[in-house]
């Protein structure tokens, strides 16, 4: 572990990503302390004002401070990202382990269902699920989770099948270890590397999907701040008040960028072939 941290520090790009993400996390956690105003406080005499010392990133059409809303929006974005990816990753892990380890009929059934999910574009699938469940934050998270599940299932399944080829699995069977324990003790730890990398990449995807859904009005509902909702709101005014769309967009892009950087560098770091 020590070595791992050391190597992550040596890897400048990955470190940059990590620091960026930590910054966003910090902003989200300390939002009430950092944000100068409440996200829904309206300064009616300062509607659509440009950036100034009073309002760092300007104000929106209701005179709300965009800087504060972005900071509070980070809470929503991270929450959606973590929980949605959590649902997708855990679901995918379980299905993938079962599918890859037992194979045969179970595998066939699980993978065919996943194929069906795969056939739809992400947003379309998420939209359909939300349309069924109703638009609110929880359902958005569930929908994104379900959308991400097939990717995880496939990844885990193929990793399991590779690991299963190793003789230490046969060895464990020969010793008499129960299948459930073989999966937990011998297979799961050995597929973690690609799995963790996929999580970081999925996090950025989830944040983006949430923004897109909110933009379409199906995610987080106003007046709650979310970067996607802010983009949606700003769309009408962006021609004469570009700051309303610029700052939330930059926030989204930077966060996703950081997650992707970290994911890419984790991919290299966790590759056992490069470990020495």
């Amino acid at each position: 572990m020590k070595v791992f941290v050391q190597r992550l520090i040596d890897d400048k790009v990955g470190l940059f990503g990590l620091i960026g993400i930590l910054l966003v996390v910090l902003l989200a956690l300390l939002a009430p302390l950092i944000a100068p105003y409440k996200p829904d406080t309206m300064f009616t005499e300062h509607v659509l004002e440009g950036p100034s010392s009073q309002f760092l990133f300007g104000t929106d059409e209701f005179g709300r401070d965009i800087f504060s809303r972005i900071i509070y929006g980070a809470q929503v974005s991270l929450q959606v990202g973590l929980i949605a990816v959590g649902i997708g990753a855990i679901g995918g892990l379980i299905l993938g382990l079962i599918s890859g380890y037992f194979q045969g009929k179970v595998d066939q059934v699980i993978m065919r269902v996943m194929d069906v999910f795969f056939a739809f574009p992400d947003i379309l699938l998420a939209l359909t699920i939300i349309a069924v469940l109703g638009p609110n934050l929880t359902n958005t998270m569930i929908a994104i989770g379900i959308v991400f599940m097939p990717v995880f299932t496939r990844l885990v399944r193929s990793a399991v099948m590779t690991v299963k080829e190793n003789e230490y699995i046969t060895n464990a069977q020969a010793i008499g270890v129960r299948p459930s324990l073989i999966i937990v003790r011998h297979i799961t730890p050995n597929i973690m590397a690609p799995f963790i990398v996929q999580i970081t990449l999925a996090l950025s995807g989830a944040i983006l999907t949430e923004a897109a859904l909110s933009f379409l009005g199906l995610g987080v509902q106003p007046p709650n701040p979310s970067w996607g909702v802010m983009l949606n709101d700003a769309r009408t005014y962006m021609e004469f008040a570009p700051w309303t769309i610029l700052f939330p967009a930059v926030a989204i892009v930077m966060t996703i960028f950081c997650f992707n950087l970290l994911g890419d560098s984790l991919r290299d770091l966790l590759d056992p072939k490069l470990k020495q």
Binding site: E165, N166, E167, Y168, T170, N171, A172, A174, I175, G176, R185, H186, P189, N190, P272
Partner: peptide
């Protein structure tokens, strides 16, 4: 199974690396 054990050829893949 405890009475019957198996030892494999490949010393690199027969032990769980973790």
């Amino acid at each position: 199974r405890k009475d019957m054990q198996l030892i494999f050829q490949d010393p690199f893949s027969s032990l769980n690396p973790r």
